[in-house]
């Protein structure tokens, strides 16, 4: 499991300009991702959790350069990914794929299943027509789609089946890394479990590496080896999944875990719930100092003045809090 480092991200920043007025002059930035660093080892699953607006999706999109980062560095197998262009970029991009949240919006309704799955193969132009047909059949089998479904259209499928099509597309070019961006969020509970099991089986068979982005910490904990917790564009804490759950160091992680309801009436009655006050501030004007300080129950004057360092509190357990 813990192989060499496949992806290394250093000080990643992705800003979206805010423009106003007739001349569309830039008046500020939405700091969607504001200086995050992490690495993903080959064959592991890194979970990335956070609430809406935390920047977790932008991290995933920046990693694939679907959204160009503003600053920072991304290394894929030690190669500076942001410096690549042309054929080199295309070659590396092929190794990094994505499964999107909404299987209704991410599949072209005018294409048949076989064409949807063949599309990445055709674009990369590596296989001949007969070989593509064979590869499509192989991929459909791999993700558990019946072979006779190849001539049908996406709307004829349920959400779970559509997500299987999305996964087959992502697998087509034998990638190393798949970014799963809320890949199960729109599915019903019983179907979520099917897709998560499929993702785990595929990882075993193909040695895949995942960046699993989700808001549902219980599912992230199930699938991940390590977990990063994001809040307002920054990673608050990163550690092994058990450490995050059993010894959360950051007050935000603690609140997040306590807010997740457990499907057990006795435990629910007995647990302490930390209810955070207020809402997440806007990423266009994040608070000074620690971005969580406005909602933190332990906040001290220092917290709104000084940005906390990203520290390795114990081996492999990182947190950005003055008091962790």
């Amino acid at each position: 499991m813990s192989g060499d480092v496949l992806i290394e991200v250093r000080g990643l920043r992705t800003y979206f300009p805010i423009r106003r007025g007739l001349l569309r002059t830039k008046v500020g930035d939405v700091k969607a991702v504001d200086g995050v660093s992490f690495h993903i080892r080959r064959g592991e699953t890194l979970g990335l959790v956070g609430e809406s607006g935390s920047g977790k999706t932008t991290v995933g999109r920046s990693l694939l350069r679907l959204q160009e980062p503003t600053a920072g560095a991304i290394f894929v197998d030690g190669v500076d990914f942001l410096a690549l262009s042309g054929a080199k970029l295309r070659q590396t991009r092929r190794r990094l794929q994505m499964v999107f949240q909404d299987p209704y919006a991410s599949l072209n309704p005018r294409m048949k299943v076989e064409d949807l799955i063949a599309e990445p193969l055709q674009i990369q132009g590596v296989l001949r027509r007969a070989a593509i047909r064979a590869r499509v059949a192989e991929l459909m089998d791999l993700v558990g789609l019946p072979a006779q479904a190849r001539g049908r259209y996406a709307h004829e499928f349920s959400g779970g089946q559509r997500q299987r099509i999305g996964i087959a597309r992502a697998l087509a070019l034998n990638p190393d890394l798949i970014v799963c961006d809320e890949a199960i969020a729109s599915l019903d509970v019983s179907i979520q479990a099917q897709i998560v099991n499929l993702l785990e089986d595929l990882q075993q068979q193909l040695g895949l590496t995942y960046l699993f982005i989700a808001h549902d910490l219980s599912m992230v904990r199930h699938i991940s080896d390590r977990i990063a917790v994001m809040y307002l564009g920054k990673i608050m804490e990163l550690a092994d999944r058990d450490a995050i759950h059993e010894r959360p160091l950051h007050p935000y992680t603690q609140a997040l875990i306590s807010a997740i309801p457990v499907p057990d009436p006795d435990l629910e009655a007995a647990r302490e719930h930390i209810v955070l006050e207020g809402d997440m501030p806007s990423p266009a004007s994040p608070p000074p100092g620690c971005v969580f300080s406005t909602r933190c129950r332990f906040a001290q004057p220092r917290c709104s003045a000084e940005v906390p360092d990203w520290r390795e509190v114990s081996p492999g357990h990182f947190a950005a809090c003055h008091f962790a």
Partner: peptide
């Protein structure tokens, strides 16, 4: 209930998903 991963349990093994739809 079996389809849900639970925060209060140790992780291990597969989720017991319901087959079909």
């Amino acid at each position: 209930l079996g389809s849900l991963p639970r925060l209060d349990e140790t992780v291990g093994g597969r989720l017991r998903s319901i087959p079909g739809r």
